[in-house]
Design a binder for these strands. Structure first.
Lengths: 222, 222
DNA sequence: CTGCCATCGTATGAAACCGTACAGAGAGGC
DNA sequence: GCCTCTCTGTACGGTTTCATACGATGGCAG
């Protein structure tokens, strides 16, 4: 991001704490603020009428929560919430819209990020079509690992089952599979990545395409 | 679309035939033309390294093939091809980009369509997570029905199995299920929708969310 | 009419996942 | 130390899909 573009938004940025399970975007409700996480991880989910959630995207320091605003849309059917403690900045949707109108380069940068998000969602669709759970789990752990410091992820099986839209014991089994190969170490409410390379092998090509698009298109978000 | 915006792109529109299985966008290749179908249906698919395809979007007269250009991105990892004969217009990516730079309202309209596409892809991800094939098939048939004239769809089981990323006999079984309830009539390489209402019931809430977003955000594309 | 090829129907055993239930193991409060 | 709550491990039968194979059928070409 150029210094000029940053100067455009900087006065409107408000630092915010982003604790676990804080809801950032409510579905079908006008979006007040757009969030730029500095740390932690957010999830974007679609909700069934049965209140069952399916994760469709994951966002960390590299991205933006509330991207619909960048597209000029005031609300979205999806929900966004924080799943791992962090902090960051927020900006009022109206201020961001003004900044986008003022700077073509800023708009362009954020639109390229939208493209990356689209590719990520498509990869999620592909991954969900593939029924092997351990593969989907591997992909999810990798995406999470990309967005945190260190190799430890504070996650329960219950939470993973919600994200992957499978039953909880299924997650337990899949974790044992990865743990049995020495790829991860599982402790109570905690998973440690031991061998990232083999985790990527396990995920196969369900992981990597969106990440490559990000590298190609986003020089440095800030 | 306002007459002024239409005047901006009109000189650059070229009519094109869009026969079945014509590839419109090659993956990871600079996009030369963006397509506006008038009839027929296009599919956007992601490709595995195994060459297996998973459909992530479907586009007809209501939309645009090659939306990445609208986001200022020159290529995409996805492939787009025509799956049912039709016709439409194309415009060189460079000309469209110029028109977008010239008209904020045109850009805004197309960005809102991008949002709808994103929601559609998310719905695909959700639908794929749900394992019941007949439900996924119902959703797919509905989306196709929305984009063609009449109630007949020229489709083979083989093709559907590629789109839904399942095996071909699975499609046969799912079709029999719907046919047994009198919802559709299946003939060789042809499916006729008999009872759209019950088809929507079968699809459940995997169908409808993107369609509602379209209604809400796109007054009339042309 | 006959042959051919795309398309569809069906079978079979294996694998993955589902919903549910319940017992065992950490971790913190008191 | 002990209680309680959350989290994890395991079990069960049932359902759905998987991969693969092969036979039947429809429709067009010659």
């Amino acid at each position: 991001m150029t210094p000029e573009d940053f100067a455009l938004v900087e006065p409107h940025l408000q630092p915010v704490a982003l604790p676990k399970s804080k809801i950032l975007i409510e579905p079908n409700t006008p979006i007040e603020y757009v969030y730029f996480p500095e740390s932690g991880v957010a999830s974007v989910v679609a909700l069934n009428s049965d209140k069952r959630t399916v994760e469709i995207g994951i966002v960390g320091w590299e991205g933006v929560v509330g991207p619909s605003v960048i597209l000029g849309v005031d609300r979205t059917p999806h929900q966004s919430f924080f799943q791992m403690d962090g902090a960051g900045y927020r900006i009022a949707a109206t201020h961001l819209t003004q900044a986008l109108d003022a700077s073509r380069s800023l708009h362009s940068l954020l639109l390229r990020y939208i493209h990356v998000l689209t590719v990520q969602t498509a990869a999620t669709a592909m991954s969900n079509g593939d029924s092997v759970l351990s593969k989907r789990l591997a992909r999810w752990l990798l995406m999470c690992h990309d967005r945190v410091d260190g190799d430890e992820l504070a996650l329960t099986h219950e939470f993973l089952s919600l994200m992957l839209a499978v039953r909880r014991p299924g997650v337990t089994e899949a974790i044992h599979l990865l743990e049995g190969s020495g790829i991860i170490k599982a402790r109570r409410a905690n998973i440690t990545i031991l061998d990232r390379e083999r985790l990527e092998e396990t995920a196969g090509d369900s992981y990597g395409v969106p990440e490559a698009e990000y590298e190609r298109l986003i020089p440095e978000l800030r």
